[in-house]
Write a protein that binds this DNA or RNA. Structure first.
Length: 592
RNA sequence: GGUUGCGUAGCUCAGCUGGAUAGAGCAUCUGCCUUCUAAGCAGACGGUCCUAGGUUCGAGUCCUAGCGCGAUCACCA
């Protein structure tokens, strides 16, 4: 049992005995003592005053006296205002560290009944390359999946490939019209970038056509519908849904270009998927379910043939689930995908990592699934994250301010390479090793930068000032891991089991207490689907360690017991730093 | 307009679900590499926690109202 737990139980007993009342152990507030006060654990005594009918200091002293008398772990106490600060014995600090060190499963929570959870992330449109927003999405989704795994769940990472729809047709039309048979090979372009180029091209011509029509007196909405290019795209979508051979062949070819491009980017980002779903498959199931929903009366058909769900009674709007021409919309396929996933995996929960601009969509989706009678709707959760903005505001394709994923990753690794060379850190390493280390450092900087911010908040990225490598950054945390690895390498045999702890400094206490917090933080991150908690924890642990490292001898400590204690402590800090970083998808090199 | 999220140092962000004198990093300035990796450490500077009420022993944190910024309310995905 943890020391906090036994203390809060003891305090509840003591309070009940002293003041003849009935305080639950879970109501006792225990926290780490602030560094500026003497003591290790603090109990807030204010809540007990109404029972003790005495002032805070008297109450604290009465409780403190009994605790120190009756619990051997505590050697002293002081009361300041309403705070009872208790001092743990040196031996006890040693025991906390040793119990963590000797418990190999500490940090991986086991559940009696593991849940099956799918985490969906990435799911980009297959008509343009990935950008900074997708990077945040991918890192978040990957990290949340890892967090849930470490919390004892069975997790499947998944993705819905948006491989059909009007947006794909736009790229295809554009390539047919303006492409002159260009291929990724002929242009020397990654496939996703090539297809993206024609998507932009479409938009350019489409806008021009609209402008013409508006000049001829059409309203903007009419022009959008009447532009010849748009009509061609609509016709193509219908042909696609009807299985037209020429269209599907082109569709396969261009999609493959995009997949090949994405594959490279995913590998660079270090993310993966257990199971892919293709919208081109699931939309059919979606359509079938819409038919069933019509029979059940969940949906209704309008005169023009379009199908709707009336959610006005739930405070939402009416929502289209099938177009009048019978083609599927976004909602149709998401209904189908959700049901198919439950059929495949019998899910207890599903996390959708999708930007906050789609909150309404998911609210509606979950409600529709509920109305259709699918029990799994209860486990659905939209992990909604804020947009990444530039100092000038949103990224805009038209203004060319989109931060491309491949470019950014390349930049990060280049910056790392430059920094490493300037410091002359990797002399004597082979080219391959250097490349590998620089990749890890660059990616650590990028991942940490994006993950340390609360997902639900928007964040700002300034491309002018490249992401930092000093201070509260990924490389700083890596640096501390690497220092620890270096210490361990130089002293590969030590026996922490037999270490006698002679003295414990404030910094050492802080480190042990942080290690002791690891599982709590992991659980919290799981409950809130929030990797930022893990990121900030790793920084705090690394920072504490860095201060410790600068103020204590480790290998150079003359006293053997003390040296082994500090080495053991370092080793455990390294262990949990690496664990935390791995959860975030950050790899730790041996040197840097 | 309805719904929803956010508002903390010049900038980027924390703040453990209500506890002690609100913390980091960047930027600026000052020290520290002849002991374990200086991508570091120590220090200085920097705050009306958007505003006004309320709840309580105690509010950056909870409630109400207002202000500001974003998202959303499509036969786009």
């Amino acid at each position: 049992m943890s020391i906090e737990l036994s203390l809060s139980q003891k305090i509840s007993e003591t309070v009940n005995r002293l003041y003849n009342t009935n305080v639950e152990a879970s109501d006792v507030q225990i926290q780490n003592t602030l560094p500026e006060f003497k003591g290790d654990l603090t109990c807030v005594v204010f809540p007990f005053l109404r029972f003790s009918k005495k002032n805070p200091v008297q109450t604290g002293e009465e409780i403190g006296t009994l605790i120190v008398d009756e619990m051997e772990e505590f050697t002293g106490f002081n009361v300041i205002k309403g705070f009872l600060n208790l001092e743990l014995s040196v031996a006890n600090w040693g025991e906390i560290l040793n119990s963590i060190a000797s418990n190999e499963s500490y940090g991986s929570i086991k559940l009696d009944v593991p849940k099956t959870i799918m985490v969906e992330y990435s799911s980009p449109n297959t008509n343009k390359p990935l950008h900074l927003g997708h990077i945040r999405n991918n890192f978040l989704g990957y990290a949340v999946a890892e967090i849930l795994k470490s919390n004892g769940n069975k997790v499947y990472k998944t993705q819905i490939i948006n491989d059909r729809g009007i947006h794909i047709c736009k790229s295809m039309i554009s390539w047919q019209k303006f492409g002159n048979g260009a291929t990724p090979e002929s242009e020397g372009l990654k496939g996703d970038h090539l297809v993206g180029k024609y998507y932009v091209e479409f938009d350019k011509h489409y806008k021009a056509e609209m402008a013409d029509l508006i000049e001829k007196g059409l309203t903007k909405d009419e022009a959008m519908q009447e532009a010849p290019l748009f009509k061609e795209a609509q016709v193509m979508l219908k042909k696609w849904e009807d299985g037209d051979k020429e269209v599907t062949t082109l569709w396969r070819k261009m999609n493959q270009w995009v997949y090949d491009g994405f594959k490279t980017t995913y590998e660079a980002m270090g993310v993966d998927f257990d199971q892919l779903y293709y919208e081109s498959n699931t939309y059919l199931l979606g359509k079938k379910v819409v038919d069933e929903g019509l029979e059940k009366g969940v949906f209704y058909r309008r005169e023009d043939g379009s199908v709707w769900c009336d959610l006005t009674a739930d405070g939402l709007d009416e929502k289209l689930v099938l177009r009048k021409d019978g083609t599927a919309v976004y909602m149709t396929q998401d209904i189908g995908t959700a049901i198919e996933r439950d059929n495949d995996f019998k899910i207890d929960g599903m996390i959708y990592t999708v930007g906050n601009e789609q909150e309404y969509h998911f609210k509606v989706l979950f409600l529709i699934l509920k109305k259709l009678g699918y029990d799994f709707h209860e486990g659905l959760f939209h992990l909604s994250y804020g947009m990444v903005e530039l100092p000038s505001g949103k990224m805009k394709t038209r203004e060319g301010t989109v931060v491309d994923a491949d470019d950014l990753i390349k930049n990060m690794v280049e910056t790392a390479t430059k920094a490493t060379e300037e410091k002359g850190k990797l002399e004597g390493y082979t080219e391959e090793e250097k490349v590998e280390i620089n990749r890890m450092v660059g990616m650590a900087a990028l991942k940490y930068f994006l993950l340390r911010v609360d997902p639900k908040k928007g964040m700002v990225f300034n491309p002018e000032e490249s992401i930092d490598f000093n201070g509260n950054t990924g490389p700083f945390i890596l640096f501390n891991c690497v220092r620890i690895k270096s210490l361990i390498r130089k002293n590969n045999s030590f026996d922490f089991e037999g270490v006698v702890v002679l003295e414990v400094s404030e910094k050492e206490k802080a480190l042990i207490s942080k290690l002791n917090d690891y599982e709590k933080v992991l659980e919290q991150a799981g409950e809130n689907y929030n990797p930022a908690l893990i990121a900030n924890y790793s920084y705090e642990l690394a920072k504490e360690y860095s201060q410790f490292y600068a103020s204590h001898y480790i290998l150079n400590e003359g006293n053997e017991d003390l040296r082994n204690f500090r080495l053991n402590l370092s080793n455990q800090v390294g262990r949990f730093l690496e664990k935390a970083l791995n959860i975030l998808g950050i790899e730790v090199p041996e040197r840097m």
